[in-house]
Amino acid sequence: MRKEFALAIIEAKKKHDNLVFVTGDLGYMALEQVMEVFGEEFINAGVAEQNMITVSAGLAHEGFIPFVYSIAPFVALRPYEQIRNDVCLHNLPVKLVGNGGGYGYGIMGATHHCLEDIGALRMLPNMKVIVPLTAEDVVQAISFMVKDSSPNYLRMNLAAKFDFEVAEFAAWRHLKKGEKATVIGTGPVLQNIVNAYAELDFWCLSVFPVIEIPDALIESIERTGKVIFIEEHLGEGGLRETLSFHLLGKLKKAVQVLSLSASGYPSGKYGNQQWHQEENSLAGESLKNRVGSFLS
């Protein structure tokens, strides 16, 4: 999504002069064109993320809209108190952009992964966490973020591709009709289960915190009697936890639940993103097996 992000932010800058771009020394072979277009309003704040966030809060206070870019854990977790106090408490339009949410940085290892960002940020006041699914989503997400006067966090990953048409970016989307089970997922990891079990009923959630649950989703769950949550994030604090709360108040009948989520590093070993997904039953045979036994 990085390429789409760079192009979208350049387009947005042409329409909104008050955009500034702040990076935590990241962007080699990705943001050179952004740097050129933004000129003196492209700020490399160095490897100093706490200061980077608060500086951005100051810029936002004075009418700028800062897009603040780094690898996901370095923009979402390292400066957490700065996000809480200086950005969210004051409801300032600082736009955090984390590249490689989940296991996106693969073999780079655990320090570069981010399995807690959705949970950590969605509970901060005024913050909206945005998790795009496709490359097209990124463009629409940027447009949404520029218009929204509150803090946002954009969780980027490798874009998903589908062989069917996907509805336009929205908090909730019904991706594909199906039977047997209702699948609710966030982010590109959804495509792994779509590819393995095309006949299920697929829903995509792209904005946190969750404000409402579509009636049609409740109907789907009550019809199939089975829910599968899928997220490249810890289930605790993630999609599973927040939806469990919302569904508890809505569902009129008991349903079976399967949670597919990241559990960290069960073997203590590292690999590429696909490898980590497989180790956590988020891709490949392990996903097929868990979903298969749940459905049977």
């Binding site: 608060t54 500086v55 809060a57 100051g58 004075e62 108190e81 200086d86």
Partner: peptide, 18 residues
């Protein structure tokens, strides 16, 4: 929370410079 103020000043100062 200590250690935030100088960064706030930096952000406001940068905005003023821009």
């Amino acid at each position: 929370s200590l250690g935030h103020g100088l960064s706030i000043a930096a952000g406001l100062g940068l905005a003023s410079k821009l």
